[in-house]
Simulated assay, not measured.
Amino acid sequence: MTDSYLYRPEAYTAMPWKNGGGSTLEIARQRCIDDSGYDWRLSIAQIDVDGPFSVFPGYSRVITVLHGDGMVLQINGVDSEALGPLQPLSFDGGATVQCRLLGSPIEDFNLIYRPDRINASLRWVDCHPAVVLGSKATQVVFFNASVGIVNVTHASSGQRHELAPRATLRCTNVGGQLQRYSLEGAMAQVCVVELDRVD
């Protein structure tokens, strides 16, 4: 059995960066059971100039450039490779990070999570003309990074969702059984995030 929830771009919440250097559009978060913060969060951020990232001790981060010329992240003094669109990079949220743009301002997609509580994976999928994915994850999230509609269909129930550009669908797998999802869209790229609670 699966439940699903659609997050529309116009409902994303604008909030300031932790370090005050910019703002983020929060897509969704799951609060900790003990209300001490959140177990995971998905967001989109605009980066207009070089500068430091906020520090999140106890969290892991995965960041992907969505639009723009790209960036290099200096993580604890070591430069990453040049990151272009749809090239995810994972790093420790507690690290000291400096961002250097490679040209134009960029927009990026962010997953941040507590690895002591959540097992997480993130991948980008080209779903043209169509692709079928299987997952046993407790929660599977689909983010449409394309300019057109992406159709997400749950294979067992036949339930179908239309994902507008920049919309996000979260599917909760109540029973933990293998679920199959069909993704279809013309020249479409979708971010697939799988989330499970650590036993």
Rank of each mutant, 00 (worst) to 15 (best):
D69N: 14
S80C: 10
G84H: 08
L66E: 10
P85G: 12
V72H: 03
Q74E: 11
M71L: 15
I63C: 08
F53D: 09
L86A: 10
T64N: 09
A82Y: 05
V62G: 12
L73R: 03
G58N: 02
D79Y: 03
Y59W: 00
D69L: 04
G77W: 00
N76L: 02
T64Q: 10
V78E: 15
E81Y: 12
E81H: 14
F53H: 14
P88T: 06
P85R: 08
Q74Y: 06
P57K: 03
G58K: 00
V55H: 13
V78R: 13
V55E: 11
S60K: 15
G58W: 00
E81G: 14
S80F: 05
Y59I: 02
E81R: 11
H67E: 15
P88E: 05
H67F: 14
P85D: 12
L83A: 07
V62N: 11
E81M: 10
L73Q: 02
E81V: 14
S80M: 10
V78F: 12
F56R: 07
P88R: 09
L83Y: 08
G77P: 02
Y59H: 04
F53M: 09
Q74C: 11
I63T: 08
S80G: 07
V72Y: 01
P57A: 04
G70W: 02
L86W: 13
G77L: 03
S54P: 06
D79F: 02
R61P: 09
M71R: 09
L83N: 13
F53P: 11
G70E: 01
I75A: 08
S80L: 03
D79V: 01
V72C: 04
L73I: 00
E81K: 15
L73V: 01
G84A: 11
D69E: 13
L66P: 11
P85W: 03
S60D: 11
G70L: 01
Q87F: 07
L86D: 14
D69W: 00
F56I: 04
G77V: 00
G68S: 05
H67D: 14
L73N: 02
V78N: 14
S80V: 04
R61Y: 03
I63M: 07
M71N: 09
P85M: 05
S54H: 10
D69G: 05
L86P: 13
P57W: 01
P85H: 09
Y59R: 05
P88N: 07
F53T: 08
M71T: 09
Q74K: 10
P88M: 07
A82V: 02
V72L: 06
L83F: 08
R61V: 06
S60A: 14
Q87H: 15
T64D: 08
Q74D: 14
G58L: 00
G58M: 00
V55C: 11
V55R: 14
V72Q: 12
P57S: 04
V78G: 13
R61A: 10
I75R: 08
R61H: 05
T64C: 09
L83D: 08
A82Q: 14
F56M: 05
V78H: 15
L86T: 12
M71Q: 10
Y59G: 05
G84W: 00
S60R: 11
M71A: 13
H67T: 15
N76G: 09
M71D: 06
